[in-house]
């Protein structure tokens, strides 16, 4: 039996909205540790790793490990039926073929349940080693989203270059070119607006903007985003979910031939 109750049910809706454009079908892995997902996009260029710890839920019970295969798009459609302030409870039997989402309004006057059929999904799992990255940038997530969107009006790829002076996002295209440089700065009163650059050595990598724009769908989940890069390694774009876990996106770089 799997049962998980989340007072802030809207959190799961935001999570689904940040994954469904990249991945169609995926397995949610339920265990005593929590509720997790690892999935690659169909081109095997990017990967989502999402984890919500069991202690972040208001109630969490998972008697045995369970893999729930779902269409992320269909699950997102169901979660759209949940009120913004509703309490969400997910339930699944160990050998069942469905998962139930129960929505309770804050005043308990409306209770609804939606059942989603589960699917058998063969998913290829990748082992991602712990890595000490050459450079890590923490910046406002809305600023990162804006930069990726703005640069997409000019080009398809972005060169992200971290130096001690800041992080520079550059693109070129048929109509011209664009650069945005963000400098590190702290703001004691508004920590969500600070930019922190932790650099062991300068690093510059090129990525397809299309994927970064998909990752930015997670912006409503966190005020800050953390971008980790090392030479010739996939970038990690991580959004921390307060008191619960994170959603991290991995994207393979583009390499000059």
């Amino acid at each position: 039996m799997f049962e998980a109750r989340l007072t802030q049910g809207v959190l799961l809706r935001k999570l689904l909205d940040s994954m469904k454009d990249l991945v169609q079908d995926a397995n949610f892995d339920c265990s005593s540790t929590g509720f997790a997902l690892q999935a690659m996009d169909s081109s095997h260029v990017s990967l989502i790793h999402m984890q919500l710890r069991s202690d972040g839920f208001d109630h969490f019970r998972c008697d045995r490990n369970l893999s729930m295969g779902v269409s992320l798009n269909n699950m997102a459609k169901i979660l759209k039926c949940m009120g913004n302030d509703d309490v969400l409870t997910m339930k699944a039997e160990d050998q069942g073929d469905s998962v139930t989402f129960m929505f309770e309004s804050a005043n308990q006057e409306r209770i609804s349940d939606f059942e989603l059929k589960l699917m058998d999904i063969d998913s290829e799992q990748l082992g991602i080693p712990d890595t000490d990255y050459s450079a890590t940038v923490k910046m406002p997530s809305a600023e990162f989203a804006r930069i990726c969107k703005d640069l997409s009006t000019i080009g398809d790829t972005v060169l992200i270059a971290v130096t001690k002076d800041g992080v520079r996002f550059s693109t070129t295209g048929d109509i011209g070119s664009a650069n945005v440089t963000v400098r590190s700065h702290s703001n004691v009163d508004k920590p969500e607006e600070q930019v922190v650059i932790d650099m062991q050595e300068p690093v510059a990598l090129t990525f397809a903007l299309r994927y970064l724009n998909s990752f930015a769908k997670a912006t409503p989940l966190s005020n800050q985003v953390m971008i980790s890069m090392s030479k010739e390694l996939p970038v990690v774009v991580q959004y921390r979910i307060e008191d619960m876990g994170h959603i991290s996106y991995y994207l393979a770089p583009k390499i000059e031939d």
């Binding site: 095997h44 260029v45 090129t206 996939p234 991995y250 770089p253 583009k254 390499i255």
Partner: peptide, 14 residues
């Protein structure tokens, strides 16, 4: 610009 790498070039399957 450049050739798009796949993730399998960097991470092993489990």
């Amino acid at each position: 610009g450049g050739r798009q790498m796949g993730l399998a070039s960097f991470y092993r399957g489990t």
